[in-house]
């Protein structure tokens, strides 16, 4: 979605009487990376595959942890400094699983979901950020 992410709406959705733990991760645009100052980030996405990959990761998380509610949202287009680009939330009966599942989802999103960010620096330059390479799956390549 290209609009600002509604963290309060995500929180409200994740509230569940069966759950005692709710973990909400919000990723935001950072102003400084080392000595370079960022004005904004711009995100590009291969949308149908991104949706499929997010669903696959959610299915995998649900198979590993007792998740009652989950949300994964990513903003596209321009995201100014301090605004949210990604929201991942998990609600589980006990907190440990909520932390673990939320960490799993954001870490996997960052290597599997086909979304790319472009840095726009204050000096007028721009740069595509190349993410970490995922570990090679056996039989791949």
């Amino acid at each position: 979605m290209h609009e600002p992410l509604d963290v309060a709406a995500a929180d409200a959705y994740l509230r569940d009487a069966r759950c005692g733990g709710l973990n909400l991760f919000v990723g935001t645009t950072r102003q400084w990376t080392g000595t370079r100052e960022t004005v904004e980030l711009a995100y590009e996405c291969y949308e149908p595959m991104a949706i499929k990959e997010m669903q696959r990761l959610v299915d995998e998380a649900k198979a590993r942890w007792p998740i009652e509610r989950v949300c994964v949202l990513h903003r596209l287009g321009v995201v100014p400094v301090a605004e949210a680009s990604v929201v991942v939330g998990v609600a589980t009966p006990h907190r440990a699983a909520a932390f673990e599942a939320c960490r799993f989802l954001i870490d996997e999103l960052k290597v599997q979901v086909p979304i790319w960010k472009r840095e726009h620096y204050t000096d007028g330059t721009t740069e595509w950020v190349q993410g970490a390479q995922p570990p090679r799956v056996e039989g791949e390549g």
């Binding site: 996405c45 990604v86 960052k110 979304i115 190349q130 993410g131």
Partner: peptide, 10 residues
């Protein structure tokens, strides 16, 4: 078919 360079969402 799509070519995916290392992704950088989040």
């Amino acid at each position: 078919v799509a070519l995916i360079t290392p992704v950088s969402g989040g």
